[in-house]
């Protein structure tokens, strides 16, 4: 089985029999394409997003060795000068007081075709939004912002961390040039100020909530529960990752993709 087919089968995305011919052609084209050059840039994050990527155990080895070229990244590649890259995955928010972070982010924008805010710290600031400085090792490091505050971001993959599946699905979409699948991630690049209270202001206040419970299911810190059919936020637990609003069926609705995935 081809690598792409293995990944698709891992994700439950097997081609339907009648579509097989065309799918195989697509896979052939995909495999003949040059491997995308990927850089991994680590700013102020906990490495959880990179850890989540490695949780794609079944496909990780072929993914890293045969499908992409990792050309830059601390601990991954022995290289000081940032090379040209097709895709830069940026993990972590950017500390405005850390000149190295700011400089590196600016350089990424110049050297990378696509800049991806990888994980909620890069996408929305996530829990680094709570930083107020005054701590060791550098008390001056106080202001942490999502990378879209400083550079243009092409794709955003929120999550604390993003699930192994969304990472694998995104890689497959990038390699296939499946822009339809990536479209919501382009839109999410503009969603930089996230909070559990978005459910109240953007869903309940807007007469859109239907009490389905998807937000509370999705919350990665159990900050949400459902009371009388509406989400209730425990602000002390909320890390401002934005996942509750991103998963809400009333925030954005990928109707075509869902029907395609279900074979309907």
């Amino acid at each position: 089985m081809s690598i792409l087919a293995r990944i698709k089968s891992f994700l439950g995305m097997e081609a339907k029999p009648d579509e097989k011919a065309s799918k195989e052609e697509v896979e052939k084209v995909a495999e003949e394409k040059a491997k995308p050059k990927i850089g991994y840039i680590h700013l102020s994050g906990c490495t959880g997003d990179g850890m989540s990527l490695t949780e794609n155990y079944d496909i990780l080895a072929p993914l890293l060795t045969e499908m992409v070229d990792i050309v830059y990244g601390q601990t991954l590649v022995d290289l000081w000068e940032m090379p040209e890259m097709d895709i830069a995955l940026v993990e972590g928010s950017c500390c405005l007081q850390d000149e190295h972070s700011v400089k590196e982010l600016m350089e990424v924008r110049e050297k990378a075709g696509l800049v991806v805010a990888f994980g909620s710290c890069a996408a929305t600031g996530c829990f680094t939004r709570y930083s107020r400085g005054g701590q060791q090792a550098q008390p001056n490091h106080e202001s942490f912002v999502p990378i879209a505050d400083l550079v243009k971001v092409d794709l955003s993959i929120p999550g604390c961390p993003p699930s192994p599946e969304i990472i694998a699905k995104t890689v497959v979409a990038v390699i296939n040039g499946d822009m339809d699948y990536l479209a919501p991630m382009m839109d999410l690049a503009g969603y930089t100020e996230a909070c559990g209270c978005d459910l109240q202001t953007k869903v309940v206040n807007q007469a859109l909530c239907i009490g389905c419970g998807t937000c509370a299911m999705a919350c990665q810190t159990r900050a949400l529960s459902m009371t009388n059919g509406r989400p209730e936020l425990n602000e002390d637990r909320c890390i401002k990752c934005g996942i509750c609003y991103v998963q809400c069926p009333r925030s954005w609705w990928p109707a075509d993709r869902i029907k395609q995935d279900l074979g309907l």
Binding site: P158, P162, E165, A218, C241, Q247, R257
Partner: peptide, 14 residues
């Protein structure tokens, strides 16, 4: 709808 969206786009759902 919430379930299907999560299956197609499992951003934070592992």
């Amino acid at each position: 709808m919430g379930i299907r969206k999560m299956q197609s786009y499992p951003f934070g759902v592992r």
